[in-house]
């Protein structure tokens, strides 16, 4: 790399890092203000707004609900995404291309569209008002992430591994649980954590599926913004970011981030 290129490269990287981290830094700064108005740079330093959100029951309940939704989402997408991911990567399936396109649909359809569709479907079924439809909804729209994580693990699997298990005397079910599944575990962990974070953060679809009794955290924050904007919202956001960050750290510890970044 020439000298000019090196300089240009550094400038671009710095710019990208600043742009990506600026919102987080602003929120982090605003959350530790000692004043009553949300602002950046903060007016003094205090953790009083963190204290305030701990005492705030609606926020705490909304947070717990969001975690519940995320857990339901993982429980639904884990078996579905794992099996689909392995099947798409390892076997020749009739209409494989079609299935792949179908699985991509959630990406191409605007969230508001799928949100309204899901709202109508769940409304017809008369199940709106509980948390599990939101879990299923977030699982549905984010499933491609799970499938990609698993199939990238499964694609690098030696196809002879399953034949080897068979020649050791393992039947199809034993082969799946003792050889195939352990081999794709990194992909399954990656996908599950990703699904957890995406579901935890999901705003638009949640907004359409919740009612006043079961608001999730992103919706709760949004509702609060519409009335008075106080620094406690910044504190909630920081907690939110911290949860997502810790999920990433867990991911790195368990399977390494390379696996996640290599997922197609």
């Amino acid at each position: 790399m020439g000298r000019t290129q090196t300089v240009l490269f550094r400038v671009m990287v710095t710019f990208a890092v600043v742009m990506l981290s600026a919102p987080t830094l602003v929120v982090l700064g605003a959350s530790v203000t000692s004043g009553n108005i949300i602002q950046f740079p903060p007016d003094g330093f205090s953790l009083r707004w963190y204290n305030a959100i701990v005492g705030e029951q609606t926020l705490r309940e909304a947070f717990i609900r969001s975690v519940q939704v995320a857990i339901i989402c993982v429980l639904v997408s884990l078996p579905a995404g794992t099996l689909a991911g392995i099947a798409l990567a390892r076997y020749r399936i009739r209409g494989e291309k079609l299935i792949q396109v179908y699985l991509l649909l959630p990406f191409t359809i605007p969230l508001i569209g799928s949100g309204i569709g899901l709202m109508l479907a769940f409304g017809q079924a008369g199940v709106l008002g509980s948390l599990w439809p939101i879990g299923i909804a977030t699982a549905t729209i984010n499933l491609p992430f799970m499938i990609w994580a698993v199939s990238s693990s499964a694609a690098s699997l030696d196809p002879d591994l399953e034949l080897a298990a068979m020649s050791c005397g393992a039947g199809p079910v034993q082969t799946f649980f003792s050889v195939t599944l352990p081999a794709v575990t990194p992909g399954v962990i990656t996908g599950s954590l990703l699904m957890f974070i995406l579901s935890l953060n999901e705003f638009l679809v949640s907004l359409l599926l919740v009612d006043a009794r079961i608001v999730t955290l992103p919706v709760q924050i949004y509702n609060s913004i519409r009335s008075i904007i106080t620094p406690d919202l910044a504190a909630v956001s920081v907690v939110f970011i911290a949860v997502a960050l810790s999920a990433i750290i867990v991911l790195d510890r368990l399977v390494g981030l390379e696996v996640f970044l290599k997922s197609k």
């Binding site: 002879d160 591994l161 034949l163 080897a164 298990a165 003792s178 352990p182 081999a183 575990t185």
Partner: peptide, 9 residues
């Protein structure tokens, strides 16, 4: 097997 196909885990 050609690539041995040992169980990596």
């Amino acid at each position: 097997f050609q690539k041995l196909a040992l169980f990596p885990h």
